[in-house]
């Protein structure tokens, strides 16, 4: 760290020769993509069903439950999921991490989608129904296209949440399964190696890229506000 001698790409080369590390990077990506995908599907369904409640206070009650995982500290989510998986007899590893990531991403998707859904005028649906559209048509041809900016935003938020998570994964991982955050923690615990810096740079570039894509998509669709992670 303190012995700067010059620039080299040596560390990056070393990084790509390390199969284990490569596997961990790919694991992190798969977990992020897959969990974001599944969380988006469940989250959209959740938002639609919350939106279906016409009474204001039942909507709010549901939202309160929805937000529990967002405001909960990571430590509590990690610890309680560890108990949950142990009780359910689920092996710690890929699936436990995937399930946790899906679980803590769902409420974010709901929060990104719901405002779009609520701002949609109900007359739009009535009009479609009057013109003879089936319920399925209403969903796929009216509702989903309308809320799609929210869906995209939700997906990217879920993605970044997942890529960034350390605490929850730290609690529920095992059996040699590791994500980048956890690996960085254990690598760096043994003293900072330049290898980590190379890794960090790559990770940083990946996230920046996602930010740009996300920003571009939201700007294009005119969604206001910038989401961000914990």
């Amino acid at each position: 760290m303190n012995n700067f001698e010059g620039f080299t790409l040596e560390w990056y080369r070393e990084l790509f020769h390390d199969t284990r590390l490569l596997i961990i990077v790919l694991n992190t990506l798969v977990i992020a993509l897959l969990s974001a995908l599944i969380a988006t599907i469940i989250g959209v369904l959740g938002a639609i069903s919350i939106g279906n409640y016409k009474k204001r206070h039942s909507q709010n009650a549901l939202l309160a439950v929805n937000n529990v995982l967002i405001v909960s500290p990571d430590v509590i989510i990690g610890a309680s999921f560890l108990i949950l998986f142990t009780m359910a007899g689920i092996q710690l590893g890929f699936y436990s991490v995937l399930l946790s990531h899906i679980a803590f991403s769902i409420p974010i998707v709901v929060l990104m989608v719901l405002p779009k859904l609520l701002e949609m005028s109900p007359t739009l649906i009535d009009a479609a129904r009057d013109l003879g559209a089936s319920r399925w048509d209403v969903l796929t041809k009216v509702i989903l296209p309308y809320i799609s900016p929210g869906i995209v935003a939700g997906f990217f938020m879920a993605l970044t949440y997942s890529l960034d998570d350390f605490a929850v994964t730290f609690f529920v991982t095992g059996n040699g399964f590791s994500t980048l955050s956890v690996e960085i923690y254990s690598l760096a615990r043994r003293g900072i190696s330049l290898n980590i810096n190379a890794l960090s740079t790559i990770m940083f570039l990946v996230t920046i890229m996602m930010v740009i894509i996300y920003y571009y998509l939201t700007q294009r669709s005119g969604t206001k506000g910038v989401g961000f992670r914990r």
Binding site: L22, L26, V30, L33, A36, L37, P145, V152
Partner: peptide
């Protein structure tokens, strides 16, 4: 809707490829 479906399918596809790659590497 079509775009949305296409996006989802392509994410799924990427995931599948990645999983295959991880398995190969493993």
């Amino acid at each position: 809707m079509k775009n949305l479906m296409r996006a989802f399918l392509s994410v799924l596809f990427v995931c599948l490829i990645l999983i295959v790659v991880i398995n190969r590497l493993n």
